[in-house]
């Protein structure tokens, strides 16, 4: 067997070692940020904290979590992410499936493809986008956060490519059985494409969860901000060039710990979701094996 060969064994040892090293490089900065978030503000602000907190305390987290708007922001964030992912995935799966058909069978697909691709490159900028949302009367609604980014062309093209990899025989068999396109998509393509769906869902979720600027623009009531926008607004930038800071103001500036804490508060939910989605990668293999 291959894994018994001496060469492969050497490679394996080397491989594990390399991967471990890479992981360490990825995790060290995070440990640093974590250490800062648990430190007292003075050493943190003077940049004295390394990988271990100085003057351990929870204040940075308490400041964010005790905020009245935190719970609401969390709910809005989750709502936006779920709704956004559901709507986005529905649109992208349908379109991605249709686009995965051969040119021979579905000649118009090229037109559609370029119609979508074009929007990936060209954008009119922030002013017309803002006017559109305002004129559609979507200001201050969750739809202003969900709809504009619903069709992510990059993700849709990826999805299309995954659908293309599905063996054609399966589709033909299904169509011969008298199933329509919708039925084929639902009962053949979706179950077999779980890894792809998990991947694209993850991408979509991450995008929605992390976006904050659209919240600032389109949500006029700051009590309705999603979590990412809310987190951005806990810390208000200070521009000292012109300001004569007030003594009360100055006391609030110790922000480095809060900023660091926010990274974890904001990232944690996505981190929890990820290992859960990883299961689908394994499931996909099994299903694929059975079907073929």
């Amino acid at each position: 067997m291959y894994h018994k060969s001496a060469g492969y064994r050497t490679f394996s040892v080397f491989n594990y070692l390399l991967l471990t090293l890479i992981c360490v490089s990825c995790i060290l900065p995070l440990i640093h940020i974590l250490a800062v978030s648990f430190s007292a503000s003075s050493p943190a602000n003077a940049n004295l904290v390394g990988l271990w907190p100085i003057g351990f305390n929870w204040d940075a987290y308490a400041k964010t979590l005790n905020n009245d708007n935190f719970h609401n922001a969390m709910l809005v964030g989750v709502e936006r992410t779920l709704l956004g992912t559901a709507v986005g995935m529905a649109l992208m799966i349908l379109a991605g499936y249709a686009l995965s058909k051969d040119n021979g069978m579905f000649r118009s697909r090229s037109v559609y493809t370029w119609y979508f691709l074009f929007t990936m490159l060209f954008s009119g900028g922030i002013v017309p986008a803002y006017m559109l949302i305002r004129n559609l009367d979507l200001m201050n609604t969750i739809w202003a956060l969900v709809l504009p980014g619903a069709v992510n062309v990059f993700n849709m093209v990826l999805l299309m490519n995954f659908f293309r990899a599905v063996p054609k025989e399966l589709e033909e068999a299904s169509l011969i059985d008298g199933a329509g396109q919708f039925r084929t998509l639902w009962s053949i393509y979706l179950p077999i494409s779980m890894p792809a769906l998990a991947t694209i869902s993850l991408f979509t979720m991450v995008t929605h969860w992390n976006s904050w600027f659209d919240g600032l623009l389109y949500i006029t009531d700051y009590r309705k901000y999603p979590l990412s926008t809310f987190l951005q607004t806990i810390i208000v930038q200070q521009d000292f060039n012109k300001i004569n800071p007030d003594i009360n103001e100055l006391k609030n500036i110790s922000q480095r710990t809060v900023k660091s804490a926010q990274i974890f508060i904001g990232t944690l939910p996505i981190l929890i979701v990820y290992p859960f989605l990883q299961r689908f990668f394994v499931k996909g293999i099994i299903l694929g094996a059975v079907k073929e």
């Binding site: 922030i126 600032l216 623009l217 006029t220 700051y222 901000y225 951005q232 607004t233 208000v236 930038q237």
Partner: peptide, 12 residues
């Protein structure tokens, strides 16, 4: 009303 972070007030 907007929370003024990252120049949000100016942008708006």
């Amino acid at each position: 009303v907007v929370t003024n972070t990252n120049d949000a007030y100016k942008t708006k």
